[in-house]
């Protein structure tokens, strides 16, 4: 779909936040000098066209319970696909990316408890024959990431 200036204004505005109020779209529409029904229809179109990935609350994954850890491995090129298959087969692996570095496989483990992170990492080290390095977050810095629409 092609975005017009109004769509872009909506995207830029709603990245900053959305009110908790009985009629939040009416409030946002007033701020943007739009009609409420037009605002909702445009959001529907953009969600349909997947220009909007998500619209709603963004949760702090750790606050919701569970443990998360970024992990990395150096998988030799000729074993890479085999190692990836072993890693991806674990349901605790949420995402996994090949990256350009000696540590060429980076994935996130998501488990119920902290102890399980170490268990899964050790199990993957044994199963693949390559050490899984864990990079837990020590400190998270608040980000102001915005995509200019």
């Amino acid at each position: 779909m092609t975005l017009d200036d109004t769509d872009r204004r909506i995207l830029n505005h709603l990245q900053e936040g959305f009110p908790i109020a009985p009629d939040p779209f009416a409030l946002v529409a007033a701020e943007l000098a739009l009609d409420e029904a037009d605002l909702i229809a445009r959001l529907e179109r953009m969600r349909e066209a997947r220009v909007i990935t998500r619209f709603g609350p963004f949760f702090d994954a750790a606050a919701m319970g569970g443990a998360f850890c970024l992990c990395a491995m150096a998988a030799p090129e000729d074993e890479f696909d085999r190692v990836a298959e072993i890693v991806n087969a674990r349901p605790e692996v949420a995402h996994n990316y090949a990256r350009s570095h000696a540590l060429n496989m980076w994935f996130v483990l998501a488990t119920e408890t902290e102890a399980e992170i170490a268990e899964v990492a050790e199990a993957l080290t044994r199963a693949t024959g390559h050490e899984v390095l864990c990079f837990p977050k020590l400190q998270e810095f608040f980000v102001r990431f915005r995509v200019a629409a």
Partner: peptide, 11 residues
């Protein structure tokens, strides 16, 4: 802080 914000995430 359980909800970081309520907002749109563009693709």
């Amino acid at each position: 802080g359980v909800i970081r914000r309520i907002a749109v995430a563009p693709n």
